[in-house]
Computed example of a mutant assay.
Amino acid sequence: MSYLPIVKVAAAHVAPVFLNKRATVAKAISLIREASRHGAQLVAFPESFIPAFPVWASLWAPIDNHDLFEKLVQESIFADGPEIAEIAAEAARSGVFVSLGFSERSHASVGCLWNSTVLIDDRGTIVNHHRKLVPTFYEKLVWAAGDGAGLRVVETPIGRIGGLICGENTNPLARYSLIAQGEQIHISSWPALWPTRRPSTGGNFDNVAANRLRAGAHSFEAKAFGIISAGYMDAGMRDYLAARDPAAAAVLDDSPRAASMFVDPTGAPIGDTVRDEEGIAYAEFDLNRCVEPKQFHDVVGYYNRYDVFALTVNRERQEPVTFRDARSHSTITAQGEITGAGARQHEVRPGDREVN
């Protein structure tokens, strides 16, 4: 007898309108509507879908990329900005949950960016906001390190949903922190490609095999279903980069393309796989299938030794500065939020509130 929900999920295997936040938001809204028409209750978008994944950091030296960084900053978005609000409104209209990857701007700095995701529920409420803990390899030239505030599993009517961004799915402690919150659906988001070598030196990192391995391992250990939502490199993105430096074309063309797919609680493939074209992949998750495998290995239950191992996770949102008002003994954070005895004496700008 079933007592947990059966959920239809979608992974949007799509390209952004490269470095164009307005057009990419419009594309995301269209895709949410399409997935909803096909019965999806949850749709996941790729890593840094808005406005694009900064693959150029793998192609050229930092001193050659200043203009691209400035363009990325200009087209990145705030977590409490109008672009997220538009997508949240569409989630509510369509009645679906949305996981969205985006390059996030900071209210405290004109140049600080994070690699972030938000989970939006079917009423248009942001129920989690995660910043990638450690940018991977050349991503460090673009994004700042995040914090643990988003290491949360959200209990929803369609299951307990958690997620990590790209290389975080290789971090066993981050993954364990989600498993220990009863995760049933794990969303992993990925870029369209991951260049690591020039063709003449022996080819590139196998994106698809690595992503499938990591997603399968997490689902096997968590006894949870997995959504692998990867980006797609369209002609617009490729041509934009190749026009800048024709030598980059060979690297882009030689790098394996990512795939969007799903895995079940044993780590086995389930549902659709989309790789070589844009599209939406679908799968059905019967969350009752998360229960039986817990008899074999429940790494947050009987199959652990809490007297031997311990893990502490700091989930405080980190701020660059705290201002103390001597008159009222209140604290003003970099986001403009005011705490303490004098909070009522100050006006807080609504646009500066943190979204969590």
Rank of each mutant, 00 (worst) to 15 (best):
A26M: 04
T331N: 09
S229M: 05
K223C: 14
D64T: 08
N65C: 14
D253E: 15
D245L: 08
P191Q: 09
V300I: 09
I6G: 07
G111K: 10
H13R: 03
Y303C: 03
W190K: 03
E47Q: 14
T117D: 10
F102V: 04
K27D: 05
C112S: 13
Y232V: 07
D352Q: 14
G279L: 03
R123K: 12
N169P: 02
R175P: 00
R152Q: 14
Y282A: 03
L19Q: 04
Y3I: 04
R317F: 08
F53E: 08
G216R: 09
S48H: 12
M237N: 01
G81Q: 07
H66N: 06
H346P: 03
E278P: 07
V300K: 11
L241V: 00
I84M: 11
V73L: 05
A28N: 08
A217P: 00
F296G: 09
V110R: 11
I158N: 02
R238V: 01
D352Y: 12
L42F: 10
D245N: 15
K223R: 15
P135T: 12
D121P: 01
A88Y: 09
L241M: 02
N314S: 08
L193H: 11
L119R: 08
I6F: 02
Y303R: 02
I32T: 07
E90L: 06
Q74M: 01
G203T: 09
Q345L: 12
N171I: 13
V55P: 04
A283K: 11
F323N: 01
G202R: 07
L241P: 00
F49M: 12
M233T: 15
L42V: 10
S106A: 12
G202K: 12
G167T: 05
A61V: 02
F45I: 06
D254Y: 02
S116Q: 05
P199V: 08
I120Y: 07
P265L: 05
A250Q: 13
C112N: 12
N211A: 13
D239H: 02
A283C: 13
P269V: 10
D352L: 15
R22Y: 08
I332S: 01
D64E: 14
R257C: 04
R131G: 00
S330T: 04
G301M: 06
A91L: 06
